[in-house]
Write a protein that binds this DNA or RNA. Sequence first.
DNA 1: AATATAGTGTGTATTTACTACACTAAGTAA
DNA 2: TTACTTAGTGTAGTAAATACACACTATATT
Lengths: 229, 229
Amino acid sequence: MKEDLPQFNSTFSIDCVVFGFDEGELKVLLIERNEEPFKDWCALPGNLVRVDESLDQSASRILKELTGLGDIFMEQYYTFGDVQRHPQGRVISIAYYALLRLGGDKALKPLTSYAKKAFWKNVSDLPKLAFDHQMIFEKGLEKIKRRIKHQPIAFELLPEKFTLTQLQNVYELIIGKKLDKRNFRKKMLSFGVLKELDEKQKGVSFRAAMLYKFDRRKYAKLFGKEISF
Amino acid sequence: MKEDLPQFNSTFSIDCVVFGFDEGELKVLLIERNEEPFKDWCALPGNLVRVDESLDQSASRILKELTGLGDIFMEQYYTFGDVQRHPQGRVISIAYYALLRLGGDKALKPLTSYAKKAFWKNVSDLPKLAFDHQMIFEKGLEKIKRRIKHQPIAFELLPEKFTLTQLQNVYELIIGKKLDKRNFRKKMLSFGVLKELDEKQKGVSFRAAMLYKFDRRKYAKLFGKEISF
DNA sequence: AATATAGTGTGTATTTACTACACTAAGTAA
DNA sequence: TTACTTAGTGTAGTAAATACACACTATATT
């Protein structure tokens, strides 16, 4: 059974649920497998953990190979270890979610070196996934839904400079309901973690909105006070 | 290196942070190791995962061996995988916390079949721990601190029947600050997940308090509404 | 028997946070 | 210059969280 797997000293793998926000949609990065098992199926990007790397390093490596980017916001959230989850033997998978800035300038395309095909899919329109990746995805989505309510992770999905409307869109998408614009702004600004820039949105065919950025210093000063929606 | 370890097909282990509440203190269950490495050191209870059991099953088994009890509240919370964390080779450890009803009647003693010694220690007074167990413990404590603010896990630390004062004690201990008694009661009762019994505390040298129990049915009906402190 | 202690049990006023809601201003395109 | 689209703002009512004061019960100590 195990002989089919590449030679690493143990069989644990990392799987990543990579979220991105673009064109008002929440997307997730999938690959198409070109090996058995589940050849030609869609799957979450992942790989075996090498003997000489930590779990976080392994996840970073996978993301780097996949996107070409380093320094991506990423967190381990659960480990899946059902006996039957991999048809060729016992493989335990440590799952990470990652949040990626897609918006605006550079429309990020996954690298083809990593897999035959890699592409963004709207979270509300996923194909069937290989292994137990459906479950891994769902648990990941649930986690960021919970987390966004208490911690400032929405910014990780937006470009450096963003408008309050974009920010609100991210919240609405992830939480899954509409928010009142005035209340949203009031509350968001009241946390004091946003910096208003002297700059406006460009290239839009209507009144340009003010740009803001997330101010990590100010956030650090809050020290545990919750930002919550 | 790896040859020193027992023969399981892969080297994953489970480590458990078992919390208990007794005599107004939050305690954690430790063992004294009687094998190398870290012979005679204190450590968190844990064991290797068997090929034919899932992670949850493995954690349940360890808890059963340790306490003799089944059906313990327990949750996986993080996986530790630094390359150097085990001196004899690469061992990835999946960490669980468990909450145990110690209070009142049966003062739970850990079974000696599991380890030479096993004992309860006050969380604020821990000895040095083997491996990276200090970190595993700290992360576990952090997790339940967070969780108790949003989900009804405090009940898992109390006997079936408990008083509101006991419940408040648990909250204060875990959250780490004093709460106003009247407000605590009002808020706690307003969630509607407690059932007042026709029964009072016994064997106390002062006015006996009303007993309550947590009503799982009512809680299930809330469906996502948060209980929060 | 008096007193100190430690716990239960209720009521109310104040402050704070949440919600609902509609218009004007600015920029673009035709 | 007009039509269109999105940005941006304030207030009032309601609900929730907090802070606070007192009365009652039972026991232990002197």
